[in-house]
Design a protein around this nucleic acid. Structure first.
Length: 114
DNA sequence: AATTTGACGCAGC
DNA sequence: AGCTGCGCCAAAT
């Protein structure tokens, strides 16, 4: 019979961290991977891709690659969703790239400081 | 079961 | 400063 697909634990961990990203801020896959000690930023990418199927309330549009590029925009239902959402949060995007990326860059470590 | 791909990152050139 | 190659680990074919 149909077997309910189990969600690997680290998927949930990644989703949890992504949900903690403050509006108007962005982060990169490597930062999350390092924070969760996944050992590979690719895992974060995979987890986020699946996140849409697991939880539709994940602000995955705030996760970019280390260059600040919207590398995952093509994976969304609408390629323009990611940019539109980020711009609506006050982030300027030029050629699928975040302007002043370092300025908006957020690190999971921030949640520990508070 | 083996090979390829992937929402990545970094060192080297 | 941009391109190439390699490493990372899991999922898909």
């Amino acid at each position: 019979m149909t077997k309910p697909k189990q969600i690997p634990p680290y998927y949930t961990s990644v989703i949890d961290v992504v949900k903690l990203i403050p509006p108007g801020r962005v982060t990169n896959y490597g930062a999350i991977a390092d924070f969760l000690a996944l050992g590979s930023a690719r895992m974060v990418g995979w987890a986020l891709h699946k996140s849409g199927l697991v939880d539709g309330d994940v602000p995955a549009h705030r996760v970019l690659n280390r260059k600040g590029e919207l590398s995952g925009r093509l994976a969304f239902s609408d390629p323009n969703y990611m940019q539109a959402k980020l711009e609506s949060e006050g982030i300027i995007i030029k050629d699928h790239r975040v302007v002043d990326f370092a300025k908006y860059h957020w690190h999971p470590e921030e949640i520990l400081k508070t």
